[in-house]
Design a protein around this nucleic acid. Sequence first.
DNA 1: GCTATAAGTAAATGAACATTTACTTATAAT
DNA 2: ATTATAAGTAAATGTTCATTTACTTATAGC
Lengths: 198, 198
Amino acid sequence: MRPKNLEKEQAIRTIALDIIANEGLENLSMQKLAKAANVSPRTIYIKYEDKEDLLIKLFITEVLGAYETAILKGFDEKMDFETGIKKLWHNGFQYLKNNRTHFALILYGKSSPLLNKAYQRENIQQGQFFAPIHRFIQSNVEAGVIRDLPFDAQRALMFSPLLDLMNEYFDHLNRPVQIITDEVIAACCDAVIKGMMK
Amino acid sequence: MRPKNLEKEQAIRTIALDIIANEGLENLSMQKLAKAANVSPRTIYIKYEDKEDLLIKLFITEVLGAYETAILKGFDEKMDFETGIKKLWHNGFQYLKNNRTHFALILYGKSSPLLNKAYQRENIQQGQFFAPIHRFIQSNVEAGVIRDLPFDAQRALMFSPLLDLMNEYFDHLNRPVQIITDEVIAACCDAVIKGMMK
DNA sequence: GCTATAAGTAAATGAACATTTACTTATAAT
DNA sequence: ATTATAAGTAAATGTTCATTTACTTATAGC
């Protein structure tokens, strides 16, 4: 039996991400992808059931999986709160900065109904993405270090500015600005840390 | 001369937003839109040059214009900082909550290259969207009330959690959760207000 | 009430779409 | 070396796409 050519599989994924990042998800077609990846359209269908299957696997496995791994590298739930958050931000920034096409698909994960539903399904079935971060926040709430808010609120306060600022980062690549600084991370921490002056 | 039927123009816009919100920007076609809006495809081309023109006008005029108006209603640059931010959050929450289809297109404005570029072009040409908010933050920096950070960082810290939490809001419409609370808004303010304990 | 004119329609255009058919190729196991 | 089989290709399928053509309709200004 002829073995799968993994280079072709990788080319399909990489080039799909390229097209999505540069032309938009709404301009990705199977024929364009096949031509750009130098394979026959049929080859894509050997590896993926259909277009939906390709998009969902790209998003969940290729992108979110790698993002989770990268963001948690060297992170330990038992770290001091500010140290932990700083680590997560720096990991996230490094990863997204070096993987602009992944960043683009992550953004589509928030807008496209297909990808959004896939993310929620995955998050419910497989325990959650980013479970160590969930536990990290939980234990810091219990220790009285940070405010007791719903987890989604904590996550939004602490991490949504990062994704937002990445857009700024990529928009100013020519005249690069230091936009993600320790002071911004500290500001994020201040949002949730208890014992602020009123 | 036969006059334009404004109801048809509004139907096209409303139903385009519906399709984008429910099926995704990637599944909006001119023919599907025409059929759903009960007009001939040609009618859309009387009012819009082509598909790009329709999407950009939908995004910039119909959605961002209305969003800006709604968010600034009753807001005054001279308000006390926390009062001002609270007003903006409540206005934004009310508006997005009642205009889910607009919210969906705003999210696509962050991911779709076409809409993203249109937003930046508009923001540069026409002075900026949300200029009063820019000035509000500026004057609070100058008065020493809040941290001196780049405007984009301030904006990300103070408002990106709102959009993020709206997703949560719409995902739990059946079993509604109070996710946007005064405590969350206060937390956002704490991120940027000066004079925190270290 | 005519008439000029832009608004509107139904149907058609050719290109591009997702997916499949019919065939060829590479290789692991015999 | 042969062979069974899944991987791969080129070309075709029928559908849907954005946009246009050829025509009809409503009405403002006379």
